[in-house]
């Protein structure tokens, strides 16, 4: 794992304490860190059943569900496959598949 620390808006190469900020403050790592690769199951939303209550959007811990054109859309770059969205969907509109690899 490589954490890039930021100094004056530029990532810097870390060789030791002198290059590091005082606290663990990483440069936008949650954007760079594509946690989708951790997933072994893939949630899938059935838009026929979806009533747009956005409970899934609200509870996704990542958060990896965006609202696009008034629909919940899973961002698979970041979705870790925890299936909390599936568990909480009041209309059973979310199911899952095993990831192929």
């Amino acid at each position: 794992m490589v954490i890039k620390f930021q100094k004056n808006d530029k990532p810097v190469k870390i060789t030791g304490a002198k290059d590091m900020p005082p606290m663990p403050a990483a440069l936008g790592s949650m954007l760079q860190n594509k946690t989708g690769s951790w997933r072994n199951v893939r949630p899938i939303i059935d838009y026929e059943k979806c009533i747009k209550c956005f409970i899934c959007w609200k509870i996704c811990p990542e958060p990896a569900i965006d609202i696009v054109d008034e629909l919940p859309v899973i961002n698979y770059d970041y979705c870790k496959g925890c299936l909390m969205c599936m568990e909480e969907c009041p209309k059973d509109a979310i199911s899952y598949e095993k990831e192929g690899k």
């Binding site: 954490i3 930021q6 870390i14 304490a17 590091m20 900020p21 663990p24 990483a26 440069l27 949650m30």
Partner: peptide
């Protein structure tokens, strides 16, 4: 260094032994 949506970074996120030790030193 501060929390700022215009300049996003994560504070206190997972920090492996590669760096944690140096934070203690600092």
């Amino acid at each position: 260094y501060k929390l700022d949506v215009k300049d996003p970074r994560s504070f206190g996120a997972l920090t492996a032994e590669e760096y944690y030790y140096e934070f203690r030193y600092k």
